[in-house]
Simulated assay, not measured.
Amino acid sequence: MFKNAVQLFEIFGFKLKVDPSWLLIAALIVWSLSTSYFPPALPGETATFYTALGIIAMLGMFISLILHELSHSLVARSYGLKVGGITLFIFGGVAELEEEPHDPKSEFLIAIAGPLMSLFLAALFYGAATLAAPQTGSSYAGAVFGYLALINLVLAVFNMIPAFPLDGGRVLRALIWGVTQDLLRATRISSRIGTVFGLFLMLTGALAVFSGGGIGGFWQILIGFFILNASNGSYQNLLVKAALRGKTAKQLMSETLHTIDAEATIAELVDDVMLRHGVSFVPVLSGETLIGYADTSGVRRFEREEWGGRPVRDILVPAEAENTVAADTPLNEVFKFMMKSSRRKLMVVEGRRLVGVISLSDLMHHMALEQEIGTRLKA
C-alpha cells in the first residue's frame, strides 16, 4: 500500500514507517499552528519562535499517532495476528494488519484500543496544560500541551464515528458480526455506512470551498475521498479473501500445458507453440525438469532472421521464487504475491516438476464467478 514509505525505527518489534505524504501534513500543521494558534495564545513573540513551537507540537502529534496505532498493533499481536508495521501518511496513521481478526471480540478490542489511547493522551496532556498554565514562564508549555490535548480528543472522537474503516466502523462491524455471526455481512453494512459518510464529507467540503471555507473544505474533500475508497476497498478485499479461502494453486491452475525444450529453436517456439496455441508465456523444460520460461519479450530481443539458428535457452528466464509457486500454496497467498510483484502468470511446481500454470485472469474469473453465484444464492 505504501511503496515509498521509509522505515525510521522499530518499536516493540513493529516497523515504524513514514510515507512521504506525511511531510505535507506535517508542514501544514506547523504552518497552521505558527500562524493561527500560537500567536493569539502567546502574543508578542517572533515568527521564528512560533514556528519552533509549531514544530514541537507537530512532533507531539507525531508521537500521539504512533501510540494510537501502537495500541491497535499490540492488541492485535496479543490475539496472534500478524502486523506488517505502522505507517504514518497524509491522513494519519495505520497499523497494517496482514489478516482479519478471527472473531468479533478480538475485532472489537483491536479497534477500540486506539481511541482509548487517544482519550488517555488527551486527559494526560490536559492535566499537564492545567498544571503548567498557572506557573510563571510555563505558558509556552501550557499552550503546546493544550493543543496536544485537543488534537488527541479530536482524534479519538473522529475515529469513533461508526463508518468503516475508521475505528468506530470496526467497532460497529464487531457488534454486527457478533449478532449475525457473518463477517461478510457485517463488513458490507459497515462499509456502506463508510461510503455514505465519505460522500457526506466530500459534499459538505465542496460546499465549504464554494462558501469561502478555503483549505479546510478542500481538506475535508480529501478525507471524504479517502474514506470512500478505503471503505469500498476493504469490502472488496474481504470478498477476495472469502472467494479464495481454503483453496490452493493446484485447484485453480491450468493443467493444459504448452511447453518447449530448451534446445529447440526460437523459430519452433514461435511457430509451433506461441502462434499455434495462442500463448505468449511458455514454460521451458530440460527433459522433465522445469528450468524457466520464455515469452514474447524475449523473442523480440533477436531479429526474425536469427530465430532459426538460436536455441530457446538464449531467451530463457530461469525458474526461481519470483515466477514459481508450490502447488499447495493457498490462493490468498498467490493473489497477494501477484499484486505485490505485478506478475500476471506463475508456474506451479512440485519440486522441480511443472504441474500447471496459474494466471491473474484465472483468479479474477474465479472470484467474479464466486460473487455471482453467491449473489444469486442470497437472492
Rank of each mutant, 00 (worst) to 15 (best):
L70T: 15
R352I: 06
L203I: 12
N152Q: 06
G216R: 07
I358H: 06
S234M: 13
I260V: 11
Y50F: 06
L74D: 10
I373W: 05
F226V: 13
L23F: 15
G374Q: 09
E303I: 03
S139T: 13
Q371F: 08
F12I: 11
V325Y: 00
Q220I: 11
V209P: 00
W219T: 10
N152D: 13
S280L: 06
T256F: 12
R170C: 00
E288H: 14
V94C: 04
W177V: 00
G278L: 08
R376H: 08
L244D: 00
S297V: 03
S139A: 15
G44P: 12
E306T: 00
L239T: 05
D362F: 10
I55K: 06
P39E: 14
G292D: 06
G127C: 06
Y147N: 02
R173V: 00
V349Q: 04
V18F: 04
L67I: 11
D182T: 03
L155M: 14
G114C: 02
Q371C: 09
V270P: 07
S342T: 05
G292I: 01
V282M: 03
W307T: 02
S359Q: 11
V157G: 01
I25P: 01
D272I: 05
D103C: 13
F9Q: 07
V6P: 15
R192M: 14
G287T: 08
D167I: 03
L153N: 04
A163S: 12
A123D: 10
E372D: 15
G198T: 10
E305Q: 06
Y293S: 07
T329D: 14
W177I: 03
Y147C: 06
E320P: 01
A294D: 00
S34C: 04
V144R: 03
L124D: 07
R276P: 03
L363Q: 01
T136C: 14
P104L: 12
L8M: 14
A243N: 07
D19A: 10
S341I: 12
S361H: 11
V209Y: 02
V355K: 08
R188K: 15
R245S: 13
L42P: 04
V30L: 09
K3E: 13
F335I: 01
A141F: 14
K250T: 05
V273P: 07
A368F: 11
V348L: 05
A27K: 06
L269W: 04
R353K: 12
G137L: 10
S191K: 04
N4C: 07
G308Y: 01
F89Y: 13
L153H: 07
T259F: 10
F62N: 13
G194S: 05
M253L: 15
D19E: 08
S71A: 15
G142N: 05
M364D: 13
Q135A: 13
Q251G: 14
T259S: 12
A249S: 05
D103E: 15
L269F: 05
P134R: 11
M347I: 11
V282I: 12
G217E: 02
